[in-house]
Simulated scan of single mutants.
Amino acid sequence: MGKLDGRVVLVTGAARGQGEQEARLFVEEGAEVVVADVLDEQGETLVKELGPRARYVHLDVSREGDWAAAVEAAKEAYGKVDGLVNNAGILRFNALVDTPLDEFMQVVQVNQVGVFLGIKAVAPEIEAAGGGTVVNTASYTGVTGMAYVGAYSATKHAIVGLTRVAALELAAKGIRVNAVCPGAIDTAMSNPALLDPAATDAGPATGSAAGPASASEAASDAVAGLYRKLVPLGRIGRAEEVARLALFLSCEDSSYITGQPFVIDGGWLAGVSAM
């Protein structure tokens, strides 16, 4: 018996990283999973590996029409949707006063508007299915501040607020809504060196005579070293650890929890150590 037997869950940004791990775990726990992303090749490859209980749909979370199409595809494949993980998001680094409006709005459209449209599109389907869950991906920067990620932090604060409002409005419809708030997680968002050079607009790391592979490894090591110093548990988090939290919030283990942000950051927000 899996914790999600009989459930149909749509996961956004599921072609790689944190969303991929959520899709994998949810299938392992018995769910039928709609893998939604704009990375078509990676998404299709993943569902082939996961088998008949996974289906890929192209979904730009900032487009309302894409959401309608994704919901219809999910219902066509599995007959219902009773779970949503709003995982898709983007991160841009910039000083607040140097951030172009276009860049700020791009982050808002994906992170904040994407979550709003997801709830709007999927909540009626969850209600029709007899109830279920929504898990929104916020961030530990959604409950505190962090320099040079103003647009990102603003959208993650907004997601925490949307989570609380949705929990209040949807509770009577049998829908629980919660948020995961990851700290530093070892995915391409926190560690761009994990990306294939062709897949990132940052391009390959430079400055190493050993070539791109060595430069990428050096950058990855530098990121890991940074978090060993910053995080009380002494390491960067793993995507599968966040996936397990999303699973908890999507199954009956959390049946009396709604409207809450759950920080998963290795103790980063606990305080400052003098040692």
Rank of each mutant, 00 (worst) to 15 (best):
L249Y: 07
V35A: 06
E125V: 07
S250G: 08
T144W: 12
K75S: 08
F93V: 14
S250F: 03
G225Q: 15
G30L: 05
G43Q: 08
G13H: 04
P197S: 05
V242L: 13
K229E: 15
V143I: 15
G51D: 10
Q42C: 12
R55W: 09
A95N: 11
T155H: 02
I257E: 04
A147P: 15
R53F: 09
T206K: 10
L168C: 07
S254R: 05
V57S: 10
R176Y: 03
R235Q: 02
A179K: 01
Q260S: 13
D265C: 12
L10V: 10
E49P: 07
D253G: 09
E20M: 11
P197K: 06
L195T: 02
Y56C: 05
V81K: 01
R235Y: 00
E29R: 10
I126A: 00
P261C: 02
D98F: 10
E125N: 07
V110C: 11
L170C: 03
A239P: 09
D98H: 12
P192S: 06
A215K: 01
V122I: 14
L59M: 06
A151F: 05
G30M: 04
Y227G: 08
A209C: 10
N191Q: 08
L96A: 15
V231T: 15
R55G: 11
T163D: 02
T99N: 10
L245N: 04
I126C: 00
R7I: 01
A199N: 12
H58P: 01
G174S: 13
L233H: 04
K80N: 03
E72W: 06
E44R: 14
Y56A: 07
E240S: 08
G118P: 02
M146F: 15
V122F: 06
Y256M: 06
A215F: 01
A129Q: 04
A154P: 12
